[in-house]
Amino acid sequence: MLQIKNLNVSYGSIHAVRNLSLEVQEGEAVALIGANGAGKTTTVNAISGTIPSKGSIIYQGKELNGLAAHKVVKEGIVMVPEGRRIFPKLSVVNNLIMGAYARKTSKKELQQEIEKIFVLFPRLAERRSQMAGTLSGGEQQMLAVGRAMMAKPKLLILDEPSMGLAPIVVKSIFSTINRIKQEGLTILLIEQNATMALSVADRGYVLENGEIRFHDTAKNLREQDVVKKAYLG
């Protein structure tokens, strides 16, 4: 579904991503794991078209590199940005409505889709008219995922959904991600939390200083000594 070949991104003299190649098959969940500053967010931004990059990003047979960000979304790649970035001054429902912006939908359809999101995240349902900025971190992350789902993605990219959240909240969010995956959505999961990421993913890539160090099935990665030492604690 998505094939990245020899992706390179530089910020001035900082070469943040080097010759990165990565593949995501349809229906698969792939984890991209790395420590702070490894270049994970940079990779995501390059895929979503918000920063310029070199190399090829083929999605369903189409070259994405060079495509404007808003067009990438129309292709079906939707991301949940690092740090959630919900609209703090809008209500939960309005945040969700904004998520469906790229599609033309009737009010009724929107309503039904919002209710589906609330099934996925019941906590949000109780807070539907609350201003999003007043939600807790975990709820905001749920909202960010819900908002992305409203865009009806074919490939969902999540950039560090566990960031700054208590373990029990992370568990709950990952079980929802797992559920979304079971429903057949293709997922690229960016994480520092390798344990959680590999519990959901089928395969994983380990990123260090902008380069892919290993890639293997999630099961094998979990058992590999180097990965264990560096990321699984």
Binding site: S48, G49, T50, A68, A69, H70, V72, V73, K74, V78, M79, P81, R85, F87, P88, K89, L90, M98, G99, Y101, A102, A151
Partner: peptide
Amino acid sequence: MVIREDDIVAQSMGINTT
């Protein structure tokens, strides 16, 4: 409104911010 709230997110919601 989305551009006002968050320019980058607006793009990644399919809005042609330009």
